[in-house]
């Protein structure tokens, strides 16, 4: 059989086939047949090669990062557990009040339907948020959350943002429903943040 290796690396067969155009038939290169003395020798060689490869790994040493003792820093835009925010004490009179007014836009944006907001009316004598309305119940079911960050995008008051915490494992599903108090609390900074340029 005449064969020629073209520039594209495909070997085409230079023989006329009935019903087929020239170059439609290519020949395939196959490895040597297994078995026989040659086969045994090749297998032995390949086995030695394999043994060398694995032994080289011992020389390299482990690459494991010893999580929880060692952690890789997250990027600043990493989307971890949500945080609810309060106004800063900047003297404008709103200091300490919750930014969230309970508008439910986050719940509307949420594709996994994991946010539940029940709003209520503010008591002017004892304000919770700056507006007329506040979130009486604000719950995120973190076992359903997909951390897409749409809630953060939807929020008109920057009241909810995605934090950096990803260590939320727990023993009960019900403990994964984060209430407003848990989301408002200053989170324990367990996750190192990647510095600029790192």
């Amino acid at each position: 059989m005449n064969a020629e290796l073209n520039t594209d690396g495909i070997e085409r067969v230079n023989r006329e086939f009935p019903y087929l155009n020239e170059g439609d038939v290519i020949s395939v290169q196959r490895g040597p047949e297994p078995g026989g003395v040659g086969g045994v020798a090749r297998t032995f060689g390949a086995t030695l090669k394999g043994l060398r490869t694995t032994f080289a790994r011992i020389v390299e040493g482990p690459v494991t990062i010893q999580y929880p003792e060692e952690k890789t820093p997250v990027f600043p835009r990493f989307r971890g557990r949500h945080k609810l925010h309060r106004f800063d004490h900047d003297g404008s009179g709103t200091g300490g009040l919750e930014k969230c007014v309970g508008c439910s836009l986050c719940a509307a944006a949420c594709p996994s339907d994991c946010i539940r907001v029940v709003a209520a009316e503010n008591d002017p004598a004892n304000r919770v948020s700056a507006g007329e309305r506040f979130a009486e119940v604000y719950e995120i079911n973190l076992s359903r959350c997909i951390f897409c960050g749409y809630c953060e995008v939807a929020c008109p008051f920057d009241a909810i943002t995605m934090g950096h915490d990803y260590e939320m494992a727990d023993y009960n599903r019900s403990d994964l429903i984060f209430t407003k108090e848990m989301l408002l609390a200053e989170p324990v900074e367990r996750t190192p943040l990647r510095r600029e340029g790192e």
């Binding site: 694995t54 032994f55 790994r57 011992i58 390299e60 040493g61 482990p62 690459v63 010893q66």
Partner: peptide, 9 residues
Amino acid sequence: LIGRFQNRH
């Protein structure tokens, strides 16, 4: 040892 062979501890 198997760990070491696989770059693990």
